[in-house]
Design a protein around this nucleic acid. Structure first.
Lengths: 170, 170
DNA sequence: CCATATTATATGAAATTTCATATACATCAA
DNA sequence: TTGATGTATATGAAATTTCATATAATATGG
């Protein structure tokens, strides 16, 4: 389908094809791409789907928790939750003991909308992984969980983060 | 760190924690997060970094090829390339045999900017994966490559894509 | 060659995301 | 309590992304 013929392709130039982050991104895109059609057909964006799926596992999460779970930034989530609340998919409630927090709950409408998607997502995942031995799938998920759990420590990286210039150097 | 205590957490509610796409996303975020600081310190956005890294493997890719490689949409890439060209990081050249195509090349400045990042990315990946047996890493990458290669066939999903209503159903 | 379909990129307007910061509440030390 | 500091979310303006479509070039069938 795609016809890659890089002009300057040379001997050692094969960075991205081996780079873990690239492989993770491409794999995720490939496995999600098909399913995205279902999500869009339900009238949801990808992030909205992740929000509803996450809340289905247990709602009442704070804005910050939700942001971390769906890999979005806090102001993005604040505004997304605004829109989803206006659409009647979720509901905000102030935390009773900590007035700074906003907890997010699914409405009946949100649940109804996402329920069939959850089932379809499971089916789609089963179909996607059907070709692989169950053992390999388990191993894959285990290592992904481990990677996702501890942010690997990179002191130099964090130092760079603190210094952050933020704009293109001249 | 995060203090999740979902209000409605119940017995079977554990969808996302087992969902492949979620695991891939979380893992990618975790392994990339630290490194992103370096990217920002170089004055680049994540997508700009992916563009330059991809072009370093061989440039002269078309807008469409680049979009697919960095998992962005075509209009996004068109505009990103505009900005990167203005910043002197890449250069557009019309394809000689197909007048519709635009091929994108790295400038010397782009190469100079991304070179240290490529080295740092390799080092960071080595550090991230150091704890895992080489055998497991190889298996992980192999399965990721397989997943990324064939978009799993899901006729129902494609049918839904064709039907796409695009807006929230009443 | 012509007409039509297809493909690749560009573009305008609208929607979303981001950055920086404001606001409100909570916590801690004295 | 008070004041200082930290934390959670909200918000405004700017930047980016998206959707839909326009534009331009190429392929294809007759």
């Amino acid at each position: 389908m795609k016809n890659h013929r890089p002009r300057r392709a040379a001997a050692g130039r094969t960075f991205v094809r081996d780079y873990l982050s690239y492989l993770l991104g491409q794999a995720n895109y490939a496995v999600y791409k098909d399913f995205e059609a279902r999500v869009r057909a339900a009238g949801l964006s990808s992030t909205e789907w992740r929000v509803l799926a996450t809340l289905s596992d247990g709602d009442g999460l704070t804005i910050g928790e939700l942001a971390a779970d769906v890999l979005a930034q806090q102001p993005t989530l604040t505004k997304l939750v605004d829109r989803m609340a206006r659409a009647g998919l979720v509901e905000r409630r102030g935390d009773e003991t900590d007035g700074r927090r906003t907890r997010v709950f699914e409405t009946a409408r949100g649940r109804t909308l996402v329920a069939p998607l959850l089932a379809q997502a499971k089916a789609h995942e089963r179909a996607t992984l059907a070709a692989f031995p169950a053992k390999d799938v388990a191993a894959l998920k285990a290592i992904l969980r481990t990677l996702g759990a501890h942010a690997p420590s990179d002191p130099a990286g964090r130092a760079a983060a603190r210094a952050k210039p933020r704009r293109r150097p001249g």
